[in-house]
Design a protein around this nucleic acid. Structure first.
Length: 569
RNA sequence: GCGCCUGUAGCUCAGGGGAUAGAGCACCGGAUUCCUAAUCCGGGUGCCGCAGGUUCAAUUCCUGCCAGGCGCACCA
């Protein structure tokens, strides 16, 4: 908790002849609770004071012996550290009061000060089914969207649909050769997907199909009527299919600016790069040589005149800056595209845009099978919808078994099932690959969303039973907590704001996800050792305030992960 | 060949310049006259990939190597 740090910083600064801010940077949380709650390491002072660290710690301990502050009650040296111990009652009071007052705003701040952050996420390729692989960008990006908003930024979600490029040439060719409109209408995305797979099979035998596809894409780019109408048709049908997944997951975007959105800007962008004098003609194509920067060259225009992915990304970046004047621009895109973004950002830099340094690629690992990677082309893929459906179904079975009297099983199963899938993607470091395993997807035990949701639901149940009369703020009760389980829980609750901040700064919702597991765990320990409703009136009041604060932290935290916190399950 | 990422307990993974390296799963054993046992408690495991280097201190930072993943001009 910030207040505690500041209090200790102020006390310590004059004693060690440092700025308060320097002291604050050094303060760290000890590895064991018995070593106190905040420690000042004396190593860096050793040189300056020409004394061994333990001697310094001891000396500081002497100077502070018998002293205490509002939020801390003693400072003790231990080895090279000076350990501060919180004053449990005051500390609990402060934490509970803050959560009580801020409610759903607890954990939020205003450091973003209304600045815009654009977040490019989800961005599926039209005409390809929404596979489990797509969930990573969607879910991580959306969580960052929510987290940045909680920090006072104005988040702008952009779905950079893959709605342009040679794949449309392929699709048009496939549809013209083998397609049937009737089947397309039945299940558009699935059918387009099958055509796409078929194209890649046939191309093995007939390589000329590739040229045909390229030429159709070229026609599309030059506005050919027939090509455009195919494209519009495919796009419309795909978008309708994606809409249902997004609505089920509660995901929204400010803009659906796909790649095609930037078509009119491409000439201007290419001119801009040419004016900068960094382009070259090579084998008929227009390229930017990045060799001086140890990067492979970038191609802006193919020899047939058609543009490429990076051309449109360049246009998109500039468009986003001009339109939204972002403070940061995030690209939540798979790690396999790291090089692409290095090139993109380098070209922006060469164009003289100093805001290039505010563009951030937020990479993540891929979801793979044990046997190897998933492949849309080869048809080796698992549909996200199937994953969601099976997870919800499994949740439903467990509810049926554990809580057969529950009224609204449908909502609870949806919350738990979808939560499990999302949490699976959010809880581990995003850069790591994930091995897809049905057993893990459908396992709701251990460190999962259900663990957190269950803690939330139990708290709601206790609060319901307590009734509204028992449940009100009480200055006196708020400072009655003293049992170890209570204090540990309070300390954990106090960490939410810093966890939210850390998640944003490192672009890692996993920090928040892991923290919520800690909160739920500490709550469970408390729950098993400290009865709420059957305790003495004053204790009961204190514990109600504590569990309500816990409920709030869990709800706020899950909210930032895009996961529903059910009141019953 | 070059570049980027990853390597921690049987498995899946946290953590991270310093105080005894942690969880979950799995396995074994315990807890429910009491707020939902989707819970809790107990039981044991680690050359933190290998080798050097920087440092008072390295599992953490740097370099090299090994293993796996990903990428490297007309795909996105």
């Amino acid at each position: 908790m910030q207040k505690l740090r500041e209090e200790i910083g102020k006390v310590l600064a004059p004693l060690v002849e440092m700025e308060t801010s320097q002291v604050l940077e050094l303060l760290e949380v000890p590895p064991e609770p018995e070593y106190g709650d905040l420690a000042f390491p004396c190593f860096t002072l050793a040189k300056k004071m020409k004394k061994p660290p333990p001697a310094i710690a001891a000396e500081l301990g002497d100077k502070l012996s018998g002293q205490k502050g509002w939020l801390w009650e003693k400072a003790e040296p231990r080895g090279p550290y000076l350990n501060f111990y919180i004053a449990p009652k005051n500390y609990s009071f402060e934490v509970l009061k803050k959560v009580w007052e801020e409610e759903e705003q607890y954990g939020h701040t205003n450091i973003g000060n209304g600045q815009n952050v654009t977040i490019d996420y989800s961005s599926p390729n039209i005409a390809k089914p929404f596979g489990v692989g797509h969930i990573r960008s969607t879910v991580i990006g959306h969580s960052l969207y929510l987290i940045y908003r909680a920090l006072g930024y104005s988040s702008i979600g952009i779905n950079h649909l893959g709605d342009w490029g040679t794949q449309f040439g392929k699709l048009i060719v496939a549809f013209k050769h083998w397609g049937e409109e009737g089947k397309l209408q039945e299940d558009p995305v699935d059918y387009l997907y099958r055509l796409y797979v078929q194209f890649h099979q046939e191309v093995e035998e007939s390589p000329e199909l590739d040229d045909e596809a390229r030429s159709w894409f070229k026609r599309l780019e030059s506005g050919d009527q027939e090509a455009v109408s195919y494209w519009e048709h495919f796009k419309k049908l795909s978008l309708e299919a994606y809409a249902s997944i997004y609505s089920r997951l509660g995901i929204e975007f400010e803009y659906y600016h796909g790649e095609s959105h930037y078509n009119q800007m491409l000439d201007r962008v290419i001119n801009l790069v040419q004016e900068q004098g960094i382009t070259k003609e090579s084998e008929g194509a227009l390229i930017v040589d990045l060799e001086p920067y140890d990067l492979p060259l970038v191609m802006l225009r193919k020899k047939d005149g058609a543009t490429l992915y990076i051309t449109r990304d360049l246009a998109a970046a500039i468009y986003r800056k001009e339109t939204f004047d972002f403070a940061r621009s995030l690209y939540v895109v798979g790690a396999e595209q790291t090089l692409h973004f290095q090139q993109l950002f380098k070209v922006l830099e060469l164009l003289g845009f100093e805001w290039a340094s505010n563009c951030v690629h937020v990479p993540f690992g891929m979801i793979r099978f044990k046997e190897g990677r998933m492949s849309t082309r080869a048809g080796k893929i698992i549909l996200l919808e199937e994953v969601l459906d099976r997870a919800v179904e499994m949740a439903r079975e467990i509810i049926e078994e554990k809580n057969p009297d529950l009224e609204d099983k449908v909502s609870a199963a949806e919350a738990v099932g979808l939560g499990a899938v999302r949490f699976g993607d959010l809880s581990n470091d995003r850069v790591k690959n994930i091995e897809f395993d049905w057993e893990k997807v459908l396992d709701f035990s251990g460190e999962t969303a259900a663990y957190i949701q269950y803690a939330h639901a139990r708290i709601c149940s206790i609060i319901r039973k307590a009734g509204p009369d028992l449940f009100a703020w009480d200055d006196n009760a708020a400072s009655l907590l003293e049992k170890e389980e209570e204090i540990t829980l309070v300390k954990t609750l106090a960490q939410l704001p810093e966890k939210v901040f850390d998640s944003a700064e490192s672009y890692k919702p996993s920090i928040l996800a892991r923290y919520l597991i800690d909160v739920a765990r500490e709550f469970n320990r408390f729950y098993h050792n400290c009865p709420v409703l059957s305790s003495e009136p004053e204790t009961q009041q204190a514990r109600l305030l504590l569990i309500n604060a816990t409920r709030q932290v869990l709800a706020n935290g899950l909210g930032l992960l895009g996961i529903v916190a059910p009141e019953e399950m």
